[in-house]
Amino acid sequence: MATYILRLQPEPAQESDVLLLKAIAARDEAALALLYDHYGRILFGLLMRILNNREEAEDVLQEVFLQVWRKAGDFDESRGRPFTWLVTLARSRAIDRLRTLASRERVAEAGAREVSEVISDAATDALKSEQRGLVSDALAKLPDEQKRPIMLAYFDGLTQSEIATRLGAPLGTVKTRMRTGMIRLRELLAGQGESFGF
């Protein structure tokens, strides 16, 4: 649907989000508050999924929005949508935090258990969020051998070598499966291009 009420529909990134970032770059506090109201929940959901710890996730969420406050002028709309920029910032900070946590193994194991739960929750909840449904549908269409390396990298912050060790698979095989899975995922999501802006 091409029209919407901005406050009520945080996704996907729109021209108005670009304007919000420009206003933030001009040090407009209200614009930052609006961007937070717009994207805070979805980014916090992502951070919770990665860090599996409410306190850590809230701390990183704060860092992310303060970084947006300081760096909004760096956003380049010719390189992608504001949503992609925000998720990339948030995930990067979360992975850094994850990699410094002493309890990484525990968190990763808890996260790995949660992968299937999140997907199945999302799949059954597709009516509540069209986009979440589309993403989980796309993931459900990937063979498990391609999906697992992607999920372990994205949500648990593991490198390809670490994934190979975790799965007991040759490194070359992990690389091939990850790449093939990403290409397939992009094709599946591109079929929903209007929703994801591809």
Binding site: I42, G45, T84, V118, S129, R132, L189, G197
Partner: peptide, 19 residues
Amino acid sequence: DEWQATAAALALGTNRSDP
């Protein structure tokens, strides 16, 4: 840039949560 857009879409598959 294009692959990062694909990766970012994965965030939409997570459960939203209130901080």
